[in-house]
Simulated scan of single mutants.
Amino acid sequence: MRRLTKIAAVTAVMALAVTGCAKKDTQTSSASGSSDKGGLCASGGSGPKIGLAYDIGGRGDKSFNDLAAAGTKKASEDLDATCKESEAAPDEPDSAKEERLRTLADAGYDPIIAVGFVYTPMVTTVAKEYPKLKFAIVDGAAEGDNVTNLAFSPEQGSFLVGVAAGLKTKTNKVGFVGGVKGPIIDPFAAGYQAGVKAVNPKATVEMKWLSDQADQKAFANPPGGKTAATALYDNGADIVFHASGLSGNGVFEAAAAEDKLAIGVDSDQYLTAPKDQQSHILTSALKRVDVAVYDFAKAFKDGTTKAGFDVYDLKRDGVGYATSGGQIDDIKDQIDSYKEKIVSGEIKVPNTL
């Protein structure tokens, strides 16, 4: 509980660059649990040797796992880094996550980056066993002199897409689909609700949650996301924002089927959505996991990593909103006005419900 409280204090999910090519031939190291979705990093590089442990959903979620991959790929290109990817299995025990990190450490990978708060206790444990290695965790609150917690202020970006929803809704009813209620996803919901209310006090925000724990039902369940979003649309919402990882694909399916609007999360999801869904994606709340992962890799190469929390907010361009598709071009000035007020401190965005 103490660790979750620490997460809530600083965090609760750019177009993807995964498809870019390095100058030299690329391949992904093969090992048990490693990704086989195509080369991510160059082989034989002289830079950092990055071990990347994915969260539920893995690479291909078009969300924060893919963003971590994008940051790692950029490190391959700019820092001559090599890497090995390792994916989480559905419903695996905590011991499997620990062993995944140990396997990367024993294979000589340094630094090691874990994606997702579920790795918090595992990173704390394994980092103590390998004090000479550097570890980072996205969205976590791990402890250790050799651990960097890459944290975000997702409530700030969520506030801005809430402003967009509040201005664009025609029914004064909007919705939110969250993976699991708690300190990681609550900031998205709280910021979104605050943004909607700031510009449209008459609007209501209905929320649905996909699971009561961070499992496959929460973040890798597109059918569940579609069912939840459809219920919100049927109840009068005309815009639904999701913070549910891969489950959000179902939200976009529902938006297209119901001829309504949806809001993406983490990456600019308009860019990776099927063409028949793009016109139904109003915007996305950006969470620049790619930037944080790349910055950590660069700091490792420069010998400047620091233990503790490294927080990415609006002021650092660590969160924000997407404009692809042009549907919010007419209200961008209003959204940016709120952005300036958040950066200046005039507006304090809530991160709890």
Rank of each mutant, 00 (worst) to 15 (best):
L79A: 01
T148S: 15
A237Y: 06
T103S: 13
I112A: 00
T120P: 13
L79P: 10
G140T: 02
A69C: 13
V138K: 03
P48T: 05
G60E: 09
G195P: 07
D329N: 15
M122D: 13
D295N: 15
G140C: 02
S34A: 15
K49G: 11
I7G: 00
G39V: 07
K197L: 04
G20I: 04
L210P: 12
G20R: 14
T323E: 15
V123C: 03
G108H: 09
D145E: 14
S247Y: 04
G166N: 00
V10R: 11
I50K: 03
R2K: 12
T125L: 07
K24R: 13
Y338Q: 14
G157A: 02
F135G: 05
T103N: 15
G144F: 12
D110P: 10
K341P: 00
E87T: 10
F159A: 01
V251W: 06
A96L: 06
S63N: 15
A322C: 06
N235L: 00
V126F: 03
I56H: 11
S267W: 04
A136M: 05
S344V: 02
D91V: 07
K287P: 01
A70N: 04
A114E: 04
K208P: 02
A107N: 13
V123T: 01
N249T: 08
D61N: 07
A8M: 11
Y338R: 10
V10G: 05
E98K: 14
A322I: 01
V13W: 09
L210A: 02
V349I: 03
S244Y: 04
T19C: 10
D110T: 04
N249V: 09
Q334W: 11
M207I: 13
Y321D: 00
P154C: 07
T5S: 12
K6V: 10
V251R: 06
F309S: 13
N146I: 10
N65M: 13
S244G: 07
A297L: 13
K73S: 06
